[in-house]
Design a protein around this nucleic acid. Structure first.
Lengths: 330, 330
DNA sequence: CTGAAAGCGCTTACAG
DNA sequence: CTGAAAGCGCTTACAG
């Protein structure tokens, strides 16, 4: 069907191997031969099959990107960062949504392995270590975002979730808030522990007791944030501030406040996490912890490339800084 | 390295072919043999190489999704729709950003062809017909979103851009606006012609002359919308309404109005297109033309599957409805 | 019901 | 500087 190496060889009157050498620019070739082969390649519109090549080289020039949900506004910029590094280098990227579902995550990783991707970038939703034996085969590097892993074939890019959460809560404390609740995100989520720990530590260091019933778990989506904030504010009217695991939950809290007639930030301050594109466009604009999502994607991909280039080298985690962006909501 | 068909065959004491048959569930196999092979498969953790299979079947179980830019809030839901159909069926999806750049688009399509994708879903940025000979090889179907193509290996999913634009402008006309400008989007864009035509026709049918200098082209991003709207409103203060090619441009116009002290909608009404997630969360909320983006993705993928299942059948375009959503801005 | 041979389109040593 | 052979891991006819 397609034009093959043999067709070109026949057209140019040389062997298959010679064409291969010209196409891959390897070995010594006489100028005359090269010209003849190149002419045939162009004339026939030959393009080498990556599939056939991959079968022997064990390199497909593809990678897998496994994230929670591309419609979560956190992820598109990350994906863009990954793609902008990958594409000019000839890598194609498989996009997969795990929906923070571990079963699904494992299935996706297997599927990617079946397609023989060269490597994987994953925002893991579960204990990665347990999974690693199964999914991280030697020679197929894996970059984990925000779940630490070290090993010859796994490495991580981390953001300072703990530090960011602590900063956010300290900001609220500095504004005299003492009754601060937290919308804590999904149980299985990679950042949850770090962010709740930041929240706890900030409170404890200021002598403010932690009330477990004010730490509300739940899927990191706006609808859930609205429900949770509503319940909290109705049951515990004394709450004057809410720190949310992410901006979507914070948006939900904002919505709940509007509905309950609580002014933000006067009656209830709200701080989110991520700085999604919406955050500075809504009213009141959202105080939040910013992560450079595009850069995060770039670093993860660069990390993967590094592992591909130096197989088996053990790399420590790379750290991404975060920054508290004070706007109107808190 | 990986477990191969031969390993399983050896372990089970049968031929390679028999293992292949068991794995693919084809042909008649005695229960005893099947059990023995299955046991070996599980014991060794054998997973067939899609690469090797693809080399002979010419099916990779992959598709390419080429869109403008995944960070444009229009696209994540579309991508999600595509993936939600693709994934359960075992298809993996390559994500590619064309940035509305024709050169890049062609390069991406070639790259996808090199990877032997089974099919492509594309939001084309340029005249597709010209490109088709080059990129749409027989047997590799292509679904074009919002650029009509018909043929045995190409088909389109269209949204009623024209109708939506016309409705939007008619709504402005019904509210007594007679000086309506348009932020028209990228020259190369697939929808631009249809949307500007809807704009023109609505004006003409109401006896309002079209002023070409009020139709401003430009990249469909917020920053550009702000600039363009600013220039327009400063040069032509008589303008009382702006119809934007998409919501991002409309958001830019909103911003420009704020900066110029023009109240929306009283001093200047604004209508966008797409209904991105932001549209109903900002203040004033954005009147816009809604497209069901998730469903659009699903339909495009289903269309592709249909073409894969019935090779060579010529399918007419599928049409997606749009709907004017009246909010505060216009 | 099961197996041996050929081939998908390339690359990797090994010769000449 | 160039070529013939073997093989990557599968499936597709063809036998038995």
């Amino acid at each position: 069907m397609a034009v093959t190496l043999r067709d070109v060889a026949q057209d140019a009157g040389v062997s298959i191997k010679t064409v291969s050498r010209v196409v891959n620019n390897q070995g010594e070739i006489s100028e005359a031969t090269r010209a003849r082969v190149t002419a045939s390649v162009n004339k026939l519109g030959y393009r080498p099959s990556k599939l056939a090549r991959a079968l022997v080289t064990q390199r497909t020039d593809t990678i897998g990107l496994v994230l929670g949900d591309i419609t979560n506004p956190f992820f598109p910029e990350v994906a863009r960062g990954v793609l902008d590094i990958a594409e000019p280098l000839g890598y194609n990227v498989f996009l997969c949504n795990s929906d923070a579902d571990h079963q699904r995550e494992v299935r996706l990783l297997h599927s990617l392995a079946d397609h023989a991707v060269d490597g994987v970038i994953i925002f893991p939703t579960y204990e990665l270590e347990e999974m690693l034996d199964e999914v991280a085969v030697p020679g197929r590097p894996l970059v984990s975002v925000n779940r630490p892993v070290d090993g010859p074939w796994a490495s991580s890019v981390m953001m300072h979730s703990y530090r960011g959460a602590k900063k956010a809560v300290e900001h609220l404390l500095a504004h005299q808030h003492r009754t601060i609740a937290m919308l804590a995100g999904q149980i299985s989520d990679a950042h949850r522990l770090q962010r709740t720990k930041g929240y706890r530590d900030a409170l404890l260091e200021h002598g403010v007791p932690v009330r477990e019933e004010w730490i509300v778990p739940g899927a990191p989506i706006q609808a859930r944030g609205r429900e949770s904030a509503r319940d909290l504010l109705l049951r515990y009217p004394e709450i004057t501030a809410i720190f949310a695991y992410n901006d979507l939950l914070a948006l939900g809290a904002l919505q709940a406040c509007h509905e309950l007639g609580r002014r933000v930030p006067d009656d209830c301050a709200i701080i989110g996490f991520d700085d999604i594109p919406l955050a500075d466009r809504i009213s009141p604009s959202l105080t939040t912890v910013r992560v450079d999502k595009y850069e995060l994607g770039r670093r993860a991909m660069n990390r993967l490339l590094q592992m591909l280039a130096e197989p088996g080298v053990v790399l420590g985690p790379a750290w991404m800084d975060v920054e508290l962006v004070v706007r109107q909501s808190g």
